[in-house]
Design a binder for these strands. Structure first.
Length: 603
RNA sequence: GCGCCCGUAGCUCAGUAGGAUAGAGCACCGGAUUCCUAAUCCGGGGGUCGCAGGUUCGAAUCCUGCCGGGCGCACCA
């Protein structure tokens, strides 16, 4: 039961990271490797340290008076080793080898080990940033685990709304973060193109077309009423469709659903299955293509648009059901086939095949996830709306039953988005005149601001999206604040040219020891944190860490900018300072690229 | 009723496998530009981390209960 619970927790489902295979060595491994080497010389601590990852004990210090990094390992080993924290710390520090990268190591407070990195270590990091460029902060590619990231997957019955925008931005950014961490990621959009709602779509389009031929149509409440339905009706190929002018002569009664179902049945009879199916497929493809265009404009692309229909036509649902039946977790009752979901922690068993022989949506879901694993993906990440949480245990249980593991499935539930304009919450009802589509939001605030704001909060937090701030081109807007730092750096280099000067980066590298201002130290520290931030954000599926980091980095740069001139007469100092801000530009650009936000040269 | 998520400054939110004195932005007050973009910077006030217990060297963080908000509990998709 506990592992099932753990799937809701981003930390415990995160993929362990591996620091042993780095090419260039960023800052944190300097500490963890020397610490590990010291521990290797202390066999008396071996048992205590066995299940304590050294990396987890190391963190950046908040207070520069505590050095650059601190480890609490001595305190955490105190109990299992039955020694005092300070004694342990003393033994560890005695075993630390001297290094050009470490200036000093101190034991402080209740038993922290504080590490002070040398200027040389920071200078090496700056050089590494420039050498690696776009690759800085990225881990080497690895083979496994192969990740399948499914997100958005909105039903193709209408345009994307602002809630889907959050899914798109979040999913795309998490995908970028995972790739930066070296994992092979495949992005997939599951198209719910089967089932009753597709018939309703087909009916809606047909009725609008019928209307356009002059037939009086009493459009049902249960149909899709949006204007886009009329547009589709006007553009699709309806040759061969007959004008069924008697659909409403004897109006069906019942509730909203019954009326729609009756109209669908009448229309199918009037047109024939094939003709109705043809209209339905055209409508579906029209909407799906529109969604794809919308997302592409938003910088969100998929490796595959996976059709739910294909699960049936390719026999994948039958394959999954066969796997289920083989496991003995399926039984019959009241003519239906049930999956014994309660064996896997669900509240009740679930129907997979109805008494009338049709498969449930749940059957498609487990078949789709079964198929993902069958295709060789090791780890499945689903980004779903918060209203889908009941589904997690069911599908995980299905994976368990079919011979895989519920632990292979990691579900991130994205909470809802509320729009604010002028301090007032924008009502999102379909009928209100206010916009609610993603396309309109992008048009109003721009792609950059939209991508940025969407990922500025964790997925499990409700998001209040303030349109006025997102639109403002002022210091209120953190997007512009970060982009402005990037543009300012580009501007400095343009200025250099206008003054007929050139940046000699080799001279800059040779002169880095001239960077002694507090703002320079602070900026170097922030830059060196970037790989750690990427790792953290990727492991926790938490793009907001990167957002906050970039804001802090931009702040460090702006502070430096205001405190010191870069283009100074002393060529060594000038080249060194230009190197520092060139590195800053690289890191800002890399971080913005992961967020899907542009890094402008001018503003 | 049961399950899941959330509750941190006036507002919007960070807070990393429990760590040292809880941080940003906005708003408010006061300052900085003969100089590389003032879309910038610096300083200041501002907190019962929802409440109450517990775990331990140490809790905003973990556990239990309560209060408040959101979402869900289909042979719908």
């Amino acid at each position: 039961m506990s592992h099932r619970h753990a799937r809701f927790d981003g930390r415990s489902t995160s993929i362990p990271w591996n620091c042993s295979s780095r090419i260039a060595r960023p800052m944190k491994p300097i500490i963890s490797q020397s610490l590990a080497a010291a521990l290797a010389n202390l066999p008396e601590l071996a048992d205590a340290v066995a299940d304590l990852p050294v990396d987890s004990t190391i963190e950046r210090t908040r207070d520069p008076g505590h050095g650059d990094f601190a480890s609490n390992i001595a305190m955490r080993l105190a109990k299992p080793a039955r020694m005092s924290p300070r004694d342990i710390a003393t033994q560890i520090v005695e075993q630390l080898e001297d290094s050009a990268e470490l200036d000093k190591v101190e034991i402080a407070g209740p038993g922290f080990i504080n590490f002070y990195l040398s200027a040389a270590a920071y200078h090496a990091e700056l050089a590494s940033i420039l050498d690696q460029g776009e690759a800085y902060g990225r881990q080497p590619a690895r083979e496994r685990p192969k990740i399948l990231l499914e997100f958005v997957s909105a039903n193709p019955t209408g345009p994307l709304h602002v809630g889907h925008g959050r899914h798109a931005a979040f999913g795309a950014t998490v995908g970028n973060l995972l790739e930066a961490s070296g994992y092979p990621v495949t992005r997939e959009y599951y198209v719910n193109d089967a089932g009753r709602q597709m018939d309703i779509l087909g009916l809606s389009v047909y009725l609008r077309w019928l209307e356009s031929t002059g037939v009086a149509v009493d459009f049902p409440d249960g149909g899709y009423r949006g204007d886009y339905i009329r547009d589709i009706a006007a553009t699709i190929d309806t040759s061969g469709a007959s004008v069924a002018d008697d659909l409403f002569t004897d109006p069906p009664d019942g509730d909203k659903d019954e009326i729609v179902d009756a109209l669908i049945a009448r229309t199918k009879t009037a047109l024939g299955q094939e003709c109705f199916g043809n209209i339905r497929q055209q409508a579906l493809e029209s909407i799906r293509a529109d969604i794809e265009d919308d997302l592409e404009e938003f910088g969100v692309t998929f490796d595959r648009w996976f059709s739910e229909q294909s699960l049936t036509t390719e026999g994948r649902i039958d394959a999954a059901l066969a796997a289920l039946e083989k496991s003995g977790t399926v039984y019959e009752r009241d003519g239906a086939k049930w999956f014994r979901a309660t064996d896997f922690g669900d509240e009740k068993d679930r129907v997979v095949v109805r008494a009338n022989g049709s498969k449930t949506y749940f059957a498609s879901d487990i078949a789709y996830h079964f198929d993902k694993r069958e295709r060789g993906f090791d780890h499945l990440i689903d980004i779903l709306g918060a209203d889908h949480h009941g589904y997690v245990i069911r599908v995980g249980g299905g994976l368990d039953a079919m011979g895989y593991s519920a632990d292979d499935l990691e579900v991130k539930l994205v909470q809802f988005v509320a729009l604010y304009r002028g301090g007032e919450k924008v009502q999102m009802s379909t009928r209100s005149g206010e916009f609610e589509t993603l396309r309109e939001l992008r048009a109003e605030v721009g792609n950059d601001a939209a991508r940025f704001f969407y990922v500025s909060r964790g997925h499990d937090q409700h998001l209040d999206f303030d349109l006025d701030i997102a639109k403002s081109e002022s210091n209120d807007n953190p997007v512009y604040y970060i982009q402005y730092a990037h543009a300012r750096i580009a501007s400095v280099f343009r200025q250099l040219g206008e003054r007929s000067l050139e940046w000699d980066s080799d001279n800059g590298r040779a002169s880095l020891s001239q960077l002694n201002e507090p703002q320079e130290k602070s900026l170097m520290t922030s830059l060196s944190r970037y790989p750690e931030v990427i790792e953290l954000a990727a492991n926790n599926r938490a793009p907001q860490h990167l957002v906050h980091y970039l804001r802090d980095l931009a702040n460090d740069f702006h502070t430096y900018y205001n405190a010191h001139a870069f283009i100074v007469d002393d060529a060594g100092l000038r080249d060194a300072r230009l190197l520092l801000i060139a590195a800053t530009r690289v890191v800002i650009a890399n971080g913005l690229a992961i967020l899907g936000v542009s890094a402008p040269e001018t503003m």
